[in-house]
Design a protein around this nucleic acid. Structure first.
Length: 508
RNA sequence: GGCCCGUUCGUCUAGGGGUUAGGACGCAUCCCUUUCACGGAUGAAACACGGGUUCGAUUCCCGUACGGGCUACCA
């Protein structure tokens, strides 16, 4: 049977980075097994529905290159893929369960149940309490009919038989056992006619012929209920395999990574930026921070998964080839932002300049710079080993785009001596007439010239740098000279020299 | 509280009855470079604890501790 997996997020807001990893693992598994990757939207909670969230999910997956084969955007033979569009389906299945004695109608109102919970420490709707509650197990058949006919609100609950052991085979955790006595009679169909996650999930996985359920560990406890549902429907022989992924934990402190951690630690925990109602509900995105999607994916993949190699960098293609569920670890993984940054820096360094250029240009333009393509690529070439994020290209080296605005006084104080002026001027002249057309040749020529003239490189090179960049950080001076060209270089040196002299005067 | 899952350097992890317990990020030192980075080298740094089983446990079993998840007419 061919593999079919699904990523089934709820459109309740921005998609969490953990969701992206779940999607990634599903995607890798499907691709590696020649299977199908499905995007299903689980919008059965009308109260938590957030407009725009579905588009956000789709856009995020697209940005990462995790295109679904079937799903809300491109359809497929098992649609619709949005549970609200499948609404009519679920009551039928709930009724089937009731008919077969696997579920029952319950008329208790949320308020009544809440009161019970308040009154009793550990109140649970289960085999011990259901006989004392208002449901089709305790009411005469005629009254049940009457209540249903009258349109009274009801829910359908799963009837969990006590005294049974439910054994789940988890692909990551092995055998997991549950005692049915511990399980509550979960609501399957809500009073508003919508299914709960449990019902919708099982029914849709069945209808969409899902073979493997790869989801977060938070679902492990309710998997026992899901197994009972498959059994109740008589589908136990074709139950999908389960794989429960370890959770992503906060960078520091206790608990799983939450949306608030983004602001708290100043790190993006959402793939794309999100504008909610207010600042509390608005988040920075991985994309907007300036991550390359491939780098973020690489980082995410290694949060809980490790192929049997010591390699760290993987293309999507390589990940697909190497991916295997049994190499996923069981314990939660802390979100290590330093490592995420390292991946991004590595990726930027390795991506061709021409590929980077269109990604970098918007940030450059934001600063008001409009270099031509070739110049931009050259600048990228000089800076790519010195940046971590895409916007750094625009902010870390302004002097590659416009004349120097500020000369680092501290360095000047250390390096500038009036007696160096003649040498500096000689070098300036030499540079203006230099024949070399590449940095290496220019460097060789200049060094030769300095040696000939008896100048000390240690005296002049730092000054050259300050003159061209204003700061001690940045690309090699000869690289900059080639990039800037003879005329611009000469102008900068001239202007700098004037500043140096003035600086000396001011010191006195 | 109950149920379920987990626990190897600070972090992500490899490993597995006898290993100098390996790699990566981060950190430190050095080299390269008369800048900053990149790169290279070196170093500090871990098997939660207590019982078993065993000639021998970090590895297997049981407890404890700690961490995580679930415990809604949310997913």
């Amino acid at each position: 049977m061919s593999v079919r997996v699904r990523f089934a997020p709820s459109p309740t807001g921005a998609l969490h980075i953990g969701g992206v990893r779940t999607a990634l693992f599903n995607y890798l598994f499907a691709r590696g097994r020649g299977g199908v990757f499905i995007l299903r939207i689980e919008d059965t909670d009308q109260n938590r529905y957030v407009p725009g969230a579905e588009d956000y999910i789709v856009e995020a997956l697209q940005w990462f290159g995790l295109q679904p084969d079937e799903g809300v955007t491109n359809g497929g033979p098992y649609g619709p893929y949005r549970q609200s569009d499948r609404k009519a389906l679920y009551p039928e299945y709930a009724r089937q369960l009731v008919r077969n004695g696997k579920a029952y109608y319950a008329f208790d109102t949320p308020d009544e149940l809440e009161a019970r919970r308040q009154a009793e420490e550990n109140f649970t709707y289960n085999y011990l309490t259901r006989n004392g509650l208002v449901n089709s197990l305790t009411l005469p058949a005629a009254e049940v009919e009457a209540r249903l006919a009258a349109g009274e609100h009801f829910v359908v609950r799963l009837l969990v038989e006590p005294g049974r052991e439910i054994v789940i085979q988890d692909l990551i955790r092995g055998e997991v056992r549950f005692q049915s006595n511990e399980l509550d009679d979960k609501v399957l169909l809500k009073a508003d006619g919508m299914p709960t996650y449990h019902l919708a999930n099982v029914v849709d996985d069945r209808l969409m012929k899902i073979t493997h359920v790869i989801r977060g560990e938070e679902w492990l406890p309710s998997t026992a209920h899901h197994a009972l549902l498959y059994e109740g429907f008589g589908w136990q022989d074709a139950m999908p395999e389960f794989a429960h992924l370890p959770l992503i934990l906060k960078p520091v402190g206790n608990g799983k990574l939450s949306k608030r951690d983004g602001a708290k630690f100043g790190i993006p925990v959402f793939p794309l930026s999100w504008k909610g109602e207010g600042p509390e509900d608005s988040f920075a995105g991985v994309r907007e921070t300036g991550f390359l999607p491939e780098a973020a994916l690489n980082f995410l993949a290694l949060l809980g998964w490790r192929p049997e190699t010591e390699q760290e960098m993987f293309t999507l293609k390589e990940m697909i080839e190497l991916f295997s569920l049994d190499q996923i670890s069981k314990s939660g993984a802390r979100f290590d932002y330093e490592k995420a940054k390292w991946f991004n820096q590595q990726y930027i360094k390795n991506v061709p300049n021409a590929t980077l250029a269109p990604l970098v240009r918007p940030y450059i333009a934001q600063q008001g710079y409009t270099p031509d393509d070739q110049t931009l690529e050259n600048i990228i070439g000089l800076m790519k080993e010195r940046v971590t994020f895409l916007p750094d290209f625009a902010t870390e080296a302004y002097y590659l785009f416009e004349p120097v605005k500020h000369y680092d006084a501290e360095t000047l104080q250390k390096k500038w001596k009036p007696e160096l002026q003649p040498a500096f001027e000689a070098l300036m002249e030499y540079l203006q007439h230099a024949q070399a057309d590449n940095a290496a040749a220019l460097e060789a020529d200049v060094k030769h010239f300095m040696q000939e003239q008896g100048f000390k490189p240690g005296d002049l090179l730092p000054l050259l740098r300050i003159a061209m960049a204003g700061t001690m950080k940045g690309p090699a001076v000869f690289d900059m000279a080639i990039l800037l060209g003879k005329a611009e270089t000469y102008q900068r040196l001239q202007k700098a020299l004037a500043h140096f002299v003035q600086f000396q005067t001011d010191l006195k």
